[in-house]
Design a binder for these strands. Structure first.
Lengths: 342, 342
DNA sequence: CGTTCCCTTGATTAACTTCAACTTGGGTGG
DNA sequence: CCACCCAAGTTGAAGTTAATCAAGGGAACG
């Protein structure tokens, strides 16, 4: 049930409005001066506030000012009620951030209209709504514009400072993006698997690549021409939204990763990386998994040396968290690996 | 000058088309079979390729297949030329990724139209074009929807797991976003100054906050309601583009930062951080700058302990890169700090 | 079956953290 | 205005972690 708060010193007007709103299905709170009104607003966080300007104790401007200082109440639609004679004061109220006003005397319909139009505005669907079918078919038609190529394992797809010409979509296989330090050490930033797009950051910024990309295993990638991608991005809101969503997720993931790199031990980072790779490329919903990944690749993902990775894997083996089968790593319990202390 | 390649075994058609295109100002290459055609295509990388289907040595399908395997030629517009009788084969060609086709015999105008429409499609302006004025006024009107609040220094704006309700815009002052490890150590991920937006990643993902934000000094922030931001994001392509651009830039910056955290010495990272802060908050185009920042804040930015920061600053002072004035840090040469070895 | 590359393990060293003691500076109140 | 006090900053010493260098062992390839 929607909550409405009425702040008004005139008893007739206050109770009249309250009665009408209650009949209309609102839970109604009333206050006969500003001070009580602010108190009720903070206590009940109503969905809309109706407030007179001229009042004893604390006037309407004061109420608005106080509620705007509070993060919890700042966004509640605020409607001034005012007599015709006070019309000049209205300007001030609107400038202070009120959302609407009603000129007294007002009839029931005016009251409903004002409240409902404010509520409608606030209740507009918030967040990204994907119509599943639409979105998929949009993506499919974008991907359909591309051309699919086969890549063998360890093949470089693009390198730093290259001019980007394509958006990439992984049809099959595994791809990593990585950066290289001056001394040649690599840090893998992201792994991509079936169904992932990659290479869009540089396209979106119209900059050259700032990282490298290479396949980890034999893969099939769909190359979508820059022009086609841009056209879709600009003319299809759903595609825009999807990429905004992906990019935001990437930022958050990378912040996570930064925290790990800064303060977590290598032991913890190796464990986390094994979990990540297992989740990304292993069987879903399984606690076990076999990874075929070289120590160098793992080291690049963790941000350490391959020797250290070897040592950590030896430790994990002693602790019965993993088993080694030749070069392959058999994870015995993903959950236990997750619990490795930092 | 645009380059066109004609692959056609019939001498009359080939030379006729070549003559017309040359007259029209194209640099024209001709091949009398597919094998030669592929060779010329790879050698000269033409802007458009016209190709017959039925040819000796290597047919049109083969040419298309080979050129699509090569990353350099995959995006060259490819137009099949075919006799009316071969029409059934056309379908196959288009499915393989040809861009258009011409039915022989065709007249000059048909030829031009086909080529020009393909070239126009490829030459479409690529990348984000902001009409400066439009964009600014759009941003201004978005910001105008917000409400401005004052914050004192060190005031927390939001914390992890909070439900985001606003987009923030810095009118004045300095804000940091940071994450906290279990043991309480902080890592600052980004600094925001006048004119920056922040807090949009979580809004865009419709997730709770994954980081904290707090002011560094007394600040004025504009809070834009989630609903207003979403409305703008969805209905104004320019706003979408701007945020896609920002997000992409953030991803790239964070990857940079990850590489530094993984492989650079604390010494280098402290130097880099000083430069970053100086560039962000100092006088533009100056090689000197005074920073008033606590050792703890610096440590959080670098991802190290405050003691280590102290030691590094002492070293830098000995090396005459900085000077200390009470607690303030006077950077004597930003350029020299940049050159600190890893 | 050999060879090559990758992996593993050991020893040493460098970098950084941590704990602890001490110093400084800036704000406050007499 | 000065003395005082507390927080912030600095420095020292010890301890930990992980990188590096080096050598031996094993797996996967032809």
């Amino acid at each position: 049930m929607k909550k409405a708060l009425i702040i008004e010193d005139n008893d007739d007007i206050r109770e009249g409005a309250a009665e009408i709103l209650t009949l209309a299905g609102y839970e109604t709170f009333t206050a006969k001066n500003g001070r009580i009104g602010v108190d009720l607003a903070i206590r009940h966080l109503p969905d809309v506030i109706l407030c007179d300007i001229m009042m004893p104790e604390l006037d309407g401007y004061g109420v608005l000012y106080l509620l705007q200082k509070n993060l919890q109440t700042v966004d509640i639609p605020f409607i001034f009620m005012t007599a015709k004679s006070e019309r000049a004061d209205l300007r001030k109220g609107m400038e202070m951030g009120a959302d609407d006003y009603l000129i007294k005397p007002f009839d029931d319909v005016e009251l409903f209209r004002a409240i409902e139009s404010r509520l409608k505005k606030r209740n507009k669907p918030i967040g990204f709504k994907f119509q599943g079918a639409d979105k998929n078919s949009l993506f499919e038609s974008l991907i359909a514009k591309g051309k699919t190529r086969s890549f063998v394992g360890k093949q470089v797809i693009y390198i730093e400072n290259d001019e980007p010409a394509h958006l990439y979509f992984v049809k099959k296989g595994q791809v990593k993006s990585y950066k290289r330090a001056q001394d040649g050490r690599e840090l893998s930033s992201t792994l991509y698997g079936k169904g992932d797009f990659f290479g869009y950051e540089s396209l979106c910024r119209s900059s050259t690549y700032t990282e490298n990309a290479a396949t980890l295993s034999d893969s099939e990638l769909t190359l979508i021409a820059k022009a086609d991608f841009m056209e879709y991005l600009f003319s299809h809101q759903e595609i825009s939204n999807a990429f905004i969503n992906m990019l935001s997720g990437n930022v958050q993931e990378k912040e996570e990763q930064m925290l790990r790199l800064a303060y977590f031990s290598v032991r913890k980072r190796v464990a986390d990386t094994l979990v990540q790779v297992a989740v990304k490329f292993g069987e879903p919903n399984s606690d076990q998994c076999t990874l075929r990944i070289s120590r160098d690749e793992l080291a690049a993902l963790v941000g350490t040396s391959s020797e250290t990775v070897s040592r950590m894997l030896a430790d994990f083996k002693d602790e019965k968290l993993i088993e080694k089968n030749g070069t392959a790593i058999e994870i015995l319990s993903i959950e236990s690996l997750r619990k490795v202390k930092q």
